[in-house]
Structure formats: C-alpha cells, structure tokens
C-alpha cells in the first residue's frame, strides 16, 4: 500500500478555475478577478489532501473481477470490460478532507457566488490530485488504463465498499455512508488497469455515455 498527503506542487490556476466556471472570454472586472484570487487562496488554506492506493492481482470471471488472495470482488459489466486486458489493477482513493466540505457549507450560507467558485476549486484540485497519482505511477513504469470510478455506468456505486476496504481508506479519513456516497464529499475512488499492452489502446471510454470521448 502506498499513501501520502504532500502535494506541494499542486496549485490552482485562475484561468483553469474560470474555464470550469463556464468562462468563454466574457469581460471580467477587477472585483471579480480579486474574488477568484481570494477564493483560490482560501481554498489552498483549507484543503487537506490525502490519498492511498494499492496494486492488486486480479482474476476475471464471466461476471466479476476477483481480487486475488482475498474474498473481495468488483462487480459490473463496465469494470469487467475496463480490466479485460489486465492481470493487475490499481485501486486508489483520495480526499480533500472534511474542512473543504465544511467551508463550502458555510459559504453556501453566506455567499453563493463564493460557494460556486470554491466548489470549482475543489473539483479542479481533486482532479489534479488524481492526475498527480497517475503521473507518479507512470514514473514507476506502469502502463495504465484510464481511471474508472464507481457510480459511472457499468460500475455500480455499491463497489465503493470493496474499494475502500481494499485500500483501508479509513486511514485517510475516507468513508462511505449507507447509500455508498463518499465522505468527505470532495473525494474520489477509482480503479485503473495495469496493462501489458500499449496503454493508448485502452484509453477510450467504451462503456459509458462519454463513449468516443
């Protein structure tokens, strides 16, 4: 198991935040620009990111992906398809910490404008955390498929339980509730196949509505 929490080099760029907010070169006044700056700063002071991942040997059956040497299985047509060429997979879990949820809740009370910007900061940041982990893995020499998360088509959300158990996510303060929603809310889990083949062959999403993207 590998886990960590230092992301010194992850920063947020104003333009990225703007794009995610739906910016299409509209006129941005100074007040608005400084609001974005202030929200990025507030977010960076608040975020408390942590992650954990582990590599497992897998066996594919007709109906499920069995994790070798333990009684746990990932289910769903999508995950079977996703890992069809793989003998190993990476299970990862990352969270930005409950502080982000808490500030977001507060901002929704006091200023929805700020809340909307802060929310986007969180979305962009968690994506960067995941990309950071992937980059680390690539540096270790793994050839990988894309990230596939429970809740997407073909990978039922109930798989959160298995995923969080596999990586003992409670260690990073990440848990799921009775509806299999992750808590803290700004968290991601994903399964990545480790492939012997050229990764690019496996990069296209073939199972969900984003097919072809």
């Amino acid at each position: 198991m590998l886990c960590g929490k230092i992301f010194m080099d992850i920063t947020l760029d104003k333009l990225e935040i703007l794009w995610c907010l739906g910016y299409k070169k509209q006129v941005i006044d100074d007040a608005f620009e400084s609001l974005i700056d202030a929200m990025i700063e507030k977010f960076m002071q608040t975020v408390n990111p942590r992650y954990v991942f582990e590599i497992f040997d897998i066996i594919l059956t007709n109906h499920e992906v069995e994790i070798k040497n333990c009684g746990l299985k990932l289910t769903g047509k999508g995950i079977l398809e996703h890992l069809k060429n793989n003998k190993k997979c990476i299970v990862l879990a990352a969270t930005l910490g409950v502080e982000v949820d808490s500030v977001l809740k507060f901002l929704q009370m006091t200023s929805m404008t700020q809340a909307v910007i802060f929310d986007v900061c969180a979305t962009v940041y968690i994506e960067k955390v995941c990309s950071f982990i992937e980059a680390e893995l690539k540096m270790l020499g793994y050839n990988m498929t894309f990230r596939y998360s429970p809740g997407y088509n073909g990978f039922p959300i109930e798989n959160q339980k298995v995923i969080l158990t596999l990586v003992d996510a409670q260690k990073i303060g990440l848990i799921f509730n009775e509806n299999f929603l992750l808590m803290p809310q700004k968290s991601v889990t994903a399964v990545i196949g480790i492939t012997e083949f050229n990764a690019s062959e496996n990069q296209k999403c073939v199972v969900c509505k984003l097919q072809g993207n």
Partner: peptide, 10 residues
C-alpha cells in the same frame, strides 16, 4: 453566454 454563473450569482 455573455455572463457566466458566478456573475449571475453575484
């Protein structure tokens, strides 16, 4: 598309 969401919220 002349304004975006935060403008609207503001």
């Amino acid at each position: 598309g002349e304004l975006f969401l935060p403008h609207l919220m503001r």
